[in-house]
Simulated scan of single mutants.
Amino acid sequence: MAEAYLKGTKLKLVFDYGLDSENKPVYKSKTFNNVRRNASNDELYQAAQAIGSLSMHPLWEIEKNDSFNIDE
């Protein structure tokens, strides 16, 4: 039976940059690689809030992206 092994975790912060000339929202993101694999969701949220507070733009969304290797 195949099993999935956690390869890595990334944390993506999406910032709200306001509206463009057509009044459509503009978002820009920053991705942090090599996030500790066993970090809890609360720890990631706190880290994202701390990093987001350093930006001039409001933090819109926080994403956690895990990648896996699938082997037998």
Rank of each mutant, 00 (worst) to 15 (best):
A50W: 05
K28L: 06
P25K: 10
R37N: 03
F15A: 13
W60R: 06
I62S: 06
S55G: 06
T9W: 00
L11K: 09
I51R: 07
E63H: 02
K24M: 06
Y5V: 12
E22I: 03
E43T: 08
Y45D: 14
N38G: 04
V14K: 06
E3K: 14
W60G: 01
D42R: 15
Q49F: 00
F32D: 06
Q46S: 10
A4R: 02
D66Y: 05
L59T: 11
S67G: 10
N34H: 13
S55F: 14
N33H: 12
A2H: 05
S29P: 00
G18C: 08
L44G: 12
R37M: 13
N33Q: 06
N69G: 06
D71G: 15
N23E: 11
N41C: 14
K28H: 13
N65V: 08
I51V: 14
A2V: 15
I51N: 08
K24D: 14
S53G: 09
E22K: 15
K24R: 01
Q49C: 01
D71W: 09
L13A: 01
N65C: 04
H57C: 13
A4S: 05
G8F: 02
V26R: 08
L13P: 03
K7T: 11
K7R: 10
L19M: 03
E63F: 07
M56T: 14
A2E: 12
Y17N: 15
A50L: 12
T9N: 13
L59S: 04
L44S: 07
D16E: 07
F15H: 08
D42F: 09
K24N: 15
E72N: 12
N41S: 15
D16Q: 09
F32T: 03
F68R: 01
E63A: 09
E61S: 14
A2C: 08
N65W: 03
S29R: 03
F32S: 03
S55N: 15
G18M: 12
